[in-house]
């Protein structure tokens, strides 16, 4: 006579299973999802405490905290997915303050019926991105909404980092005469997403630039250049980021279009869809504003880093009470690079 396994729990069907309402109901099913999927992938001593919050060791220095919600569609795209994006996005926000990111918290809103196999891919991608960045995901939450009330999965991450001693970066610190540097090509993330959404295919597919930028930031801070502002030009693109800084700092900016790097395929896709790369989202680029005398040194440091190999000095901060961001076009004329109005909609003819 065989003996009954009293503690047996049927494992999650990570191949064919789907998210059910019970996975967010607080009972056994939720505990199982957390244990078999999240805790296994994110595995670290703080998460293993298994409490409502993580108790973290003391740090020396000021803390920086930032939070970012991710709602991208499609969830999987060339170069990444919502999981890696959710890690990179928040790490970059912390890094742009001049801080070393330490921990992440992650909150998932799952839609009933979402394939567990896809969720597994996303969670593993998050774990991989966090590990690569040297950051632990120490606490989290999961909710499930009824079918039709979500878009598969939404992920909100919160990051905590420690500010480097003596570093003070802020959007209001740009001064006339400062140089504006960009770490690489524009528009790769946004166009990877859009071209996939619109079913556009190119000889060389457009790959998202999603990446954690804190090691690049660390190298830039190490070189001792007088940095004033760091920002990652995500939604709204470079144009929006520079307008924000111009407004906060009460200055104008003067850009050289010929100095701004854009991959030819991205430029072609933008042309095709009637979009301007200056307004397209990036997830692995930063804008730095620094004192003019340090610009060349900073540029060399950025170019020596794999995430800044195509870095360029793209313009300078000027005195302008209107706060206009102006650009000399490749064609030789000048124009404003304005705030994005509403959504970037394609033109008609």
């Amino acid at each position: 006579m065989s003996r009954k396994k009293t503690n047996y729990v049927k494992p999650l069907d990570l191949k064919h299973g789907r998210v059910e309402m019970s996975h967010g109901a607080g009972g056994r099913a939720m505990a199982q999802l957390i244990f078999e999927l999240f805790a296994t992938a994110f595995d670290n001593v703080y998460l293993a405490q298994g409490n409502d919050g993580a108790v973290l060791p003391p740090v020396s220095g000021k803390l920086v905290m930032s939070c970012d919600a991710h709602v991208v569609s499609p969830l999987f795209f060339a170069g990444g997915d919502i999981g890696s994006l959710a890690v990179h996005g928040t790490i970059n926000d912390v890094a742009m303050m001049g801080a070393q990111p330490l921990y992440l918290a992650a909150s998932f809103i799952l839609e009933e019926g979402f394939p567990l196999a896809d969720l597994k891919l996303i969670v593993e991608s998050m774990a991989h991105a966090a590990k690569e960045a040297g950051v632990n995901i120490v606490t989290g939450d999961t909710k499930v909404v009824e079918r039709g009330k979500g878009d598969g999965v939404f992920i909100t991450t919160t990051g905590v980092g420690v500010l480097r001693e003596g570093v003070s970066l802020s959007g209001d610190a740009a001064r006339p005469g400062d140089k504006i540097l960009l770490s690489g090509t524009l528009g790769d993330h946004g166009m990877a997403i859009l071209s996939q959404r619109e079913g556009l295919s190119f000889d060389a597919p457009i790959v998202s630039d999603t990446a954690s930028l804190h090691s690049l930031v660390a190298a830039m801070l190490d070189c001792g250049a007088e940095l004033r502002v760091l920002r990652d030009p995500t939604r709204g693109g470079l144009a929006t980021t520079l307008n924000e800084i111009a407004q906060q700092s009460c200055v104008g900016m003067s850009l050289q279009e010929s100095a701004i790097p854009v991959n030819p395929t991205v430029a072609a896709a933008c042309e095709f869809l009637g979009l301007d790369p200056l307004y397209v989202a990036n997830e692995g680029k930063l804008v730095a504003i620094c004192a003019a005398q340090d610009a060349d040194r900073l540029l060399a440091v950025m170019r020596a880093h794999p995430l800044g190999s195509r870095a360029a000095i793209i313009g300078e901060v000027i005195r302008d009470t209107h706060g206009f961001v102006q650009m000399t076009t490749k064609f030789g004329g000048r124009r404003i690079v304005d705030w994005l109005t509403g959504e970037q909609l394609p033109r008609i003819c």
Partner: peptide, 8 residues
């Protein structure tokens, strides 16, 4: 407008 042709 976009290429600043007025300047030319």
């Amino acid at each position: 407008s976009r290429y600043g042709i007025a300047d030319l």
